[in-house]
Design a protein around this nucleic acid. Structure first.
Length: 180
DNA sequence: GCCACCGGTGGC
DNA sequence: GCCACCGGTGGC
């Protein structure tokens, strides 16, 4: 029963999101086939950069010479997720919702295994206190991060200081990304 | 009535 | 000035 719900939730999320990271050599974006893989890559991105060749595990002939999977021209909203965000505890899901309007770019939520949606560190803290079973499973507050990604679309940033021109290197290789 | 979404703001 | 947090509410 719970397992079905979990699968359902996963599918729902998968329908909404695609995951991609940027090659640290050619800076092209490559789709990552599963969220699990994406989370793992993102978590270790600082120590362990991603290269197009790493995608050969699921796309045998891929290389930096291939056209990017995603370009900034695309209509879809894109975002850099911040690197170093831990994988959510098993059964938990980290949701990034890009806002379609408004001044804030995105919201981050965690869905607990029983589908309770939590919106902030204090909420998670309270929830974990009330549900000691998670603590005994080793779920730690440290595993949660509500850091929001930043926009790939430079013109989105109303607030961000008009980032003095780095026109050519608009994308740096040190961030993982996702597109939605 | 619920909840996804957006806005306001307090604390840094 | 920024952003984490949470209140309010419109749409279902």
């Amino acid at each position: 029963m719970e397992r079905d719900q979990d699968a359902h939730l996963k599918k729902k999320v998968a329908d909404e999101m695609e995951f991609a990271v940027q090659c640290s050599k050619c800076f092209k974006w490559r789709y990552i086939p599963t969220e699990e893989r994406y989370e793992k890559i993102r978590e270790h991105l600082l120590e362990c950069p991603f290269y197009c060749e790493d995608a050969r595990e699921w796309r045998p002939s891929i290389s930096c010479n291939d056209i990017p999977d995603i370009t900034q021209k695309e209509k879809k909203l894109s975002a850099f997720d911040k690197p170093g965000i831990p994988q959510p505890p098993s059964g938990w899901k980290r949701i990034v919702k890009v806002r379609t309007r408004g001044t804030i770019f995105a919201d981050v939520y965690y869905d607990s295994p029983n589908e309770k949606r939590l919106r902030s560190i204090p909420e998670v803290e309270r929830y974990l206190k009330q549900h000691s079973e998670y603590a005994s499973q080793g779920v730690k507050l440290k595993k949660f991060s509500f850091k929001t990604p930043r926009s790939l679309q430079q013109d989105y940033a109303k607030k961000r200081s008009p980032t003095p021109p780095t026109p050519s290197d608009d994308i740096n290789g040190d961030n993982a990304g996702m597109s939605m």
